[in-house]
Amino acid sequence: MSPWAGLVPAGALLLALAVPAAAQRDETVDRAEIHALLMAYGSTLDAHDFDGFGALFARDGVYAAGTGAQAHGGAEAAAMMRRIFEASPLGIAGPKYHVFFNELVDFDGPDRAHASAMSFYMVPGEDGRPVIAMMARYTDELVREDGRWRFARRRVTGLMPAPSQSR
């Protein structure tokens, strides 16, 4: 056996450890991009940009809405939200908007992650002041597809009012 044979794995290990931070996978960039994706969920819906909303989902992405309805793929998710918003189930005029908080993101690999977050859905009250109409939790599976983070699955759970109480 070559006297150098045993040194190869050790050398490879040293090389791996010597990779400068700048050359390693930049998790902070991934976190920033995932944060932007979670925010875009609200900004597209608030702007009634349903095509933009659909583009947030992976090709096989699943959107499980708080109503129990499920959409498969971005186009179906976009169509579902367009229908819901046109029907205006809350019966409240705008402006309405999402407030997100308590965002937790964990990585399952270089291109997979899962996350949870919560939201208020704000609507104008009778006097025009902001009122919290709903509080929800999001449970997400995320995937990097074609270089961009997307929802592989987003499940919305209504917390308050309880789903049966939602107007």
Partner: peptide
């Protein structure tokens, strides 16, 4: 701290 209000909705 947000609690369920008397109408079931979230109340600060």
């Amino acid at each position: 701290f947000v609690r369920r209000g008397s109408d079931g909705g979230p109340q600060p």
